[in-house]
Design a binder for these strands. Structure first.
Lengths: 110, 110
DNA sequence: CCTTTGTTTAAGTATTTACTAAAATACTAA
DNA sequence: TTAGTATTTTAGTAAATACTTAAACAAAGG
């Protein structure tokens, strides 16, 4: 077994490893949304959405507010958005770099 | 299938979801290390380490330098370290918050 | 109480990921 | 070329994750 802090750290980061969870995080980054609203936005089944929300809750990256029959979700810590955005930038920069390399190879006729 | 950008974003973030990969990232955050050195540090088998390095390479988060028989690994983009550190802070803050809540409950005698 | 609406949980299956052991590749030096 | 060291790749298996369907739970209104 690895050091428990690395273990926990890895567990928290699992919130980012599903495109649907990333879409949820993106949908609630500026304003809270109910589970029903998220179903509309993501266009997935309610149980599937609910399971992804459960992952986000268990890892503590979302906070909830109950109002009547609705449950509203929001991001628990703004650092989550910062980290998420940074990784998006890493991806974009890598894609640009790959594209640049590809162009150079084509120019050289390889 | 989700939007390809969320799909790719999720793929990149998989580098953070193994405690061993986090330990590798931590080990090379300040200075490059060879695969052999990393085996020493992590205390895992060379094939297992090599597989984790392969994940890091495929996602483009590490850069390599070959020197003789050795292959040195370093972080490809400092934003990866920033994102990793932010998620660590999110974890720490959550642990502190949980601890605080637990204390309050005990004080109330619940 | 019964029904409706919003949401979660459970069960089953398919896919993905991680680990172990064995084999292969790459480079260096004798 | 042969041997030795560093590293990766492959194959097989065990464990974790994601999705679908069906069932359960919770709150509100008639």
């Amino acid at each position: 077994m690895s050091d428990p802090i690395f273990e926990m750290h890895a567990q928290v980061c699992k919130v980012f490893t599903s495109p649907k969870r990333l879409e949820i995080i993106n949908a609630i980054r500026n304003s809270e949304k109910s589970a029903g609203e998220l179903v509309e936005i993501l266009k997935i089944s309610q149980p599937n959405l609910s399971q992804h929300l459960a992952v986000l809750r268990e890892k503590g990256v979302v906070a909830i507010r109950k109002e009547g029959q609705n449950i509203y979700y929001k991001i628990a810590n703004p650092k989550i958005i910062k980290a998420c955005d940074l990784m998006r930038e890493v991806l974009i920069e890598k894609l640009k770099q790959d594209q640049k390399l590809a162009k150079e190879l084509i120019k050289q006729g390889i």
